[in-house]
Design a protein around this nucleic acid. Structure first.
Lengths: 187, 187
DNA sequence: ACCTGAACACCGTTCAAGT
DNA sequence: ACCTGAACACCGTTCAAGT
């Protein structure tokens, strides 16, 4: 890789982080190119699809999601709600992010796959803690949980819901999960 | 209203129904105008915003939602899941519909408000049946239910989920609602 | 090998000019 | 009073021409 190419690539990613932070995952690629000080063709040369660029922008995000899961200690049911809440929040860290990741759920070859599977794994680990301390016993389908949280994140963004409205949904979701997994703790 | 104006309005709505059925709520307005055989300016004269046009397209849809609620008889918990399933399906009748309606949730003056409140009322009536036959006793927040179903509908579309995956989410949601409303029926 | 930027076919939206 | 359709500022995307 030539040094000017390497420089340009870095400039594109920096500009993308900047602009996607402000405008969301659907931000104009031409605008990102302009902000990076390069021609649109150069952006396409380095990132033939929007998702490839987005994947690069999300590298730090994925790390943060995994760190959040690692830092989470579950000692009660409300800790699990807190976790789901945090996950929904993080899924909306950039506008359109939840939708961008959801759109890729069944495409194993997508450059965004690591972002998608990172949230699944994070969820899995946290729920494993819940099981370990006896909050429930039966199986909890990680896919269903992930999809529910994504759905909650998507409405939250689209309808500009308050934190309380979002949490109310997640409490319902968690209660549903716990009943179905034969929770030993009620209410 | 002049007769040519009335004709044009009807042609626009017919074209909009056609094209929105195929392409979803975000279909190109210029394309709708072209299909209607009129200039784009004429479309904007009759429908200054996309939502005003969409509201017209949804008149029949709203009637169908209310008819569906009227035709629904709840005799068991699984009937309620069936209802939620039906509501999610109907929310995705046009691509982008769930999102279009959600975006308008807190705007009482939106032309789409009748579409939004129709789903809320429909839900309310069906859940009232559930309460009447003793499936639960406590209050169920219609807003929370509506948002959850919308969220489920949105992920379903975005991630191209199967009917089974969607239903799995709705079963969790309903169980959560019932626990929180002090259900007298378990599993 | 890589970059530029004009060009293409589209958007939504407006508005002078027509009838 | 209503309609037309060219025009504007934008998209995403491509590709000849440059270095």
């Amino acid at each position: 890789m030539r040094s000017d190419a390497r420089d340009n690539r870095a400039k594109i990613v920096a500009a993308a982080i900047d602009i996607i932070e402000q405008q969301g995952t659907m931000a104009s690629l031409n605008e990102i190119a302009k902000r990076a000080g390069i021609g649109p063709g150069t952006l396409y040369r380095h990132f033939p699809t929007r998702d490839e660029l987005l994947a690069e922008v999300l590298v730090a995000w994925v790390a943060r999601v995994e760190a959040a899961a690692d830092a989470t200690v579950i000692t009660s049911k409300s800790d699990l709600v807190d976790w789901l809440d945090r996950l929904a929040l993080v899924s909306n860290e950039y506008r359109g992010l939840a939708a961008s990741i959801a759109a890729v759920a069944d495409d194993a070859d997508s450059p965004l796959q690591s972002a998608h599977s990172a949230t699944l794994r994070a969820n899995d680990r946290v729920f494993a803690q819940g099981r370990a301390i006896g909050l429930f016993e039966g199986p909890v389908d990680a896919g269903t949980v992930g999809r529910l949280v994504t759905g909650v994140a998507m409405v939250t963004e689209q309808a500009a819901l308050s934190a309380e409205q979002t949490r109310a949904m997640l409490e319902v979701v968690l209660d549903g999960l716990l009943v179905r997994a034969a929770s030993s703790v009620q209410s």
